[in-house]
């Protein structure tokens, strides 16, 4: 008798970006525990090795610079030839950019946009090719931010890069439905990661307390976001596409 589990990812192959740390590492581990096989992508090779070890056998590493969009197709296709075709991908890689309007730079905006936003589109373009997509039960999950949903001072460029993912999610959900590919987005609140520690140093001593107050359920754990991603990749979400799921401890409920 097989165990009833609509959330299983056994027999599913996914590519995941940002896998070397934080939410990306936690998601990779959760997906692997649910049975998925993964292509783990990141620029940080040593971080990828740690994630790979924690995920166990059957996964591969793909060191990649997502800012270089022209290399994505080549590298992913090369990985597919060794790994096999994919059921979907998760775009978790992203950079933060805390800068008030008067210090926003065009160059930094372009860098941010390349990784946070355009890489998502390029990955979708590469994935939907019949040489990469396995042809059924397709699922794409983008990861944006509460700051793609609500406003915050000194975050205008970051918000631009993340809210654009919401438009991409909805447009592609319509465009790719015919191919059996669902497209969704998770918008996380603040979770305990190194990225958060770095950002916290920029603010005053009360920042941690202020941040906690923004989340009625407190600051999240990386796994809180990982579970939502796992759900969206699984057949339990087979009627879900074009959705933006707020996983934020109540941040945007206020």
């Amino acid at each position: 008798m097989t165990t009833y589990n609509p959330f299983t990812l056994v027999g599913r192959n996914f590519l995941i970006t940002g896998a070397a740390s934080g939410i990306g590492r936690a998601t990779s581990i959760v997906l692997s525990k649910l049975g998925a096989k993964l292509i783990l992508c990141d620029l940080n090779e040593s971080g990828l090795e740690i994630t790979l070890n924690e995920c166990g056998d059957g996964h591969i590493m793909l060191p990649i610079d997502l800012a270089n969009s022209s290399s994505i197709k080549l590298k992913v296709n090369d990985a597919i030839s060794k790994f096999g075709k994919l059921h979907g991908f998760v775009h978790l890689a992203g950079r933060s950019y805390i800068a008030p309007l008067k210090s926003v730079s065009e160059e930094k905006c372009k860098e941010l946009f390349a990784i946070n936003t355009y890489a998502a589109l390029e990955l979708a373009k590469v994935f939907t090719n019949r040489n990469v997509y396995i042809g059924e039960k397709g699922s794409i999950v983008f990861v944006s931010s509460v700051y793609g949903v609500v406003g915050s001072a000194a975050n205008v460029a970051y918000a631009m890069s993340k809210s654009a993912l919401h438009g991409i999610t909805k447009s592609l959900a319509i465009e790719l439905a015919g191919k059996g590919i669902r497209v969704n987005c998770v918008a996380p609140g603040f979770v305990k990661t190194n990225m958060l520690d770095t950002a916290s140093g920029m603010f005053d001593a009360n920042y941690a307390e202020t941040l906690n107050k923004l989340h009625p359920l407190g600051i999240g754990e990386p796994e809180d976001v990982a579970y939502a991603i796992a759900y969206l990749l699984s057949d339990a979400a087979k009627w879900v596409t074009g959705s933006i799921m707020n996983i934020d401890g109540g941040f945007t409920a206020q």
Binding site: I98, A99, P100, K102, S103, S105, K108, A153, A154, M202, F203, D204
Partner: peptide
Amino acid sequence: DSLTILSIIALAGE
């Protein structure tokens, strides 16, 4: 103010 301090942080980094 705090936003100017953030601007200085951004300038120093960039």
